[in-house]
Design a protein around this nucleic acid. Structure first.
Ligand code: MN
Ligand code: MN
Ligand code: ZN
Ligand code: ZN
Lengths: 158, 158
DNA sequence: CTCTAATTAGTAATAGTTCCTATTAATGAT
DNA sequence: ATCATTAATAGGAACTATTACTAATTAGAG
């Protein structure tokens, strides 16, 4: 499963096993809690690091939906998600792409049983300015853009 | 513009003026920086509080897109957004809802000039379990679900 | 078995947001 | 215009979620 120079530690194995067991789009902390039941000394940092490595390798998927905690998905097939605005659970939507947008919300309601459905559709890509600067699709989008935030070291001069 | 018992302070007025001036989906901190240029003693907390109040009153919109900072939009008409994976800027998409999903990405590319476009479509609503518990669409979705996170006071017993 | 770089546990630091409290000020009533 | 009420403020602490650091451990190639 892993690349050369990537070791299958017992921590990593247990994280994958628990992800396989729940498939419920758990947060890093939820994975941590489950794995800790089988390996008490595991640290939350280890869980975060492994979830990052696994998603960078395409073994799992990171879900950055809405404002709360990041979630992780062992299912890497192309599918969409629906989130409950009360309890924050996230369910799968095996949505094919041939419907018209006007009918999709009705379909989503039928498929999931959710009510009061809203849709936030976000696109991402490379803006014209960044294209000019020579960024390519295959170059790493992991370069952190300057967050411009107060606590950043470089903004702490004053 | 505001409800009774809502005062138009000079801080609130300046925040609205700067939002009107940039329309660029600024973060709270970016709004803070601009307003501070005109009212140096304003605090970041005041900016956050006002952005919350204004969005709760429907004057502006909160954008919880992706993993980074929350952003705010003075334009409350129904429209979609596209984010650059390199520089994190967010542009508007005046997308009508009559296209088929398969054609939308092409349209978005034509309209925005973005390349390498991906789409994350997230739905939100009330799950069947929460419907059973008597939650209604008009009841406040602001009840914070238990985040289950380590640092929560109630999880700090051990 | 040995060697070594990948990984770990524990903890500190950071980023983004919310909360708290004494003080100030916007607005309605006099 | 002055007063009284109470919403709102500045400043800072606290909180949530994630990332970074470091000395010790360990997977696994040779
Ligand atoms: Mn899923
Ligand atoms: Mn917009
Ligand atoms: Zn629910
Ligand atoms: Zn860009």
């Amino acid at each position: 499963m892993c690349k050369t120079n990537t070791r299958l530690t017992k921590q990593r194995k247990l994280i994958l096993e628990e992800l396989e067991r729940v498939k419920d789009h758990p947060t890093a902390y939820e994975v941590y809690e489950r794995v800790r039941g089988r390996l008490p000394q595991i640290s939350l940092g280890t869980v975060y690091r492994n979830l990052d490595i696994l998603s960078a390798n395409g073994i799992i998927k990171r879900l950055d939906i809405g404002q709360g905690q990041r979630r992780f998905d062992i299912t890497t097939d192309d599918h969409k998600h629906i989130r409950c605005i009360f309890c924050n659970r996230i369910d799968d939507i095996p949505l094919n792409t041939y419907h018209q947008l006007t009918t999709i919300i009705g379909i989503v309601g039928d498929v999931t049983g959710y009510r009061g459905i809203g849709c936030s559709m976000d696109f991402h890509g490379i803006c014209p300015e960044c294209q000019k600067q020579g960024n390519r699709i295959h170059s790493s989008p992991e370069q952190k853009p300057d967050s411009g935030y107060m606590n950043n070291a470089k903004n702490k001069e004053e």
